[in-house]
Amino acid sequence: MLAMTVSAPVAPTRSKAGIQHHPFDEHLLALAAGTLPVGIRLVTLTHLELCRSCRDRVAMLEALGGVVLEDQPPAPMRDDALEKAFAAIDALDQEAPRPLKVAGPPPLPAGAVWPKALSHCSATRWRWLGPGMRWSRVSVPESPDANVFLLRIGAGKYLPQHTHEGVELTQVIYGHFHDGRELFGPGDFDMADGDVHHQPVVQDGSECICIAAVEGRLSFDGFIARWFGSLVGM
């Protein structure tokens, strides 16, 4: 099973000290430069909605990028560049508008807010993944292949131990979990890669809801966990 009962919490619940875990500066710089993959970008933007310090950091990086761009020598353009730009604009004007069908998020507990960054995305109903554990697939219109999902895990339950074949981003929007390294609470952001081998455990007292994006796959330790993970694209 993917979710099991823990006999005792692995760490004490932290005090209300605000957001403790943030993206690295290199990650925020990639966001400001527009080079992050779509799923990774959306989860990062979700963090920015909750974290003023990171919003301010990105604004500063964007301003610095503008200064650097102004100092660069002009780049030569093709003779037909302007003509092609106008042709692309005309093509957009001729396209029939497509109504945006957005399915609302699955029901969330009081205090959990659906991120504005995902307001144009659709999400499935909560689906059973294991005892005390549910998930919801998030579909991103501009990037159908983006692997973004919600996890809703009950108090005292945990994911199996795993590492990562790529990058996993997790943004907490409700509750707390401890993964053997740190304690994460509402607003906290975590990035894990192949150097991280962990087991997120939801703390006693409340369920935990996270938004996650995965580039690559998670590598679970057990056969059954790997099989279940493959069903949801983890």
Rank of each mutant, 00 (worst) to 15 (best):
A87V: 02
A87S: 15
A87N: 02
I89E: 12
I89T: 10
I89G: 01
D90R: 13
D90N: 11
A91V: 03
L92M: 12
L92T: 02
L92C: 13
L92V: 03
D93M: 07
Q94D: 07
E95N: 04
E95F: 02
A96C: 01
P97L: 05
P97A: 03
R98Y: 02
R98T: 15
L100I: 11
L100N: 08
G104P: 15
G104L: 13
G104E: 15
G104H: 10
P105M: 06
P105V: 12
P106C: 12
P107S: 15
L108H: 10
L108V: 09
P109R: 14
A110C: 08
A110E: 15
A110L: 13
A110N: 12
G111L: 11
G111Q: 08
G111H: 11
A112N: 09
V113N: 05
W114V: 04
W114R: 13
W114Y: 15
W114P: 10
K116G: 07
A117G: 00
A117Q: 00
L118D: 11
L118E: 01
S119A: 15
C121V: 05
S122F: 02
A123P: 05
A123D: 04
T124V: 07
T124W: 01
R125S: 10
R125C: 02
W126M: 09
W126L: 02
W126H: 00
W126V: 00
R127I: 05
W128Y: 11
W128F: 08
L129N: 08
L129D: 09
G130Q: 03
G130R: 04
P131E: 15
P131Q: 13
R137S: 05
V138C: 11
V138W: 04
S139W: 00
V140F: 10
P141I: 08
S143L: 06
D145V: 04
D145Q: 09
D145Y: 00
V148Q: 00
F149N: 06
L150A: 08
L151T: 13
R152I: 00
G156M: 14
K157G: 05
Y158N: 03
Y158K: 06
L159R: 00
P160L: 01
H162K: 04
H162W: 07
H162I: 03
T163A: 06
T163H: 09
G166V: 04
G166Y: 11
V167A: 01
V167L: 14
E168C: 10
L169V: 12
Q171V: 10
Q171L: 05
I173V: 12
I173H: 02
I173A: 01
I173P: 00
F177A: 05
H178F: 14
D179L: 08
G180Q: 09
R181T: 15
R181Q: 08
E182W: 10
E182K: 15
L183D: 13
L183K: 01
G185H: 06
G185C: 09
P186C: 03
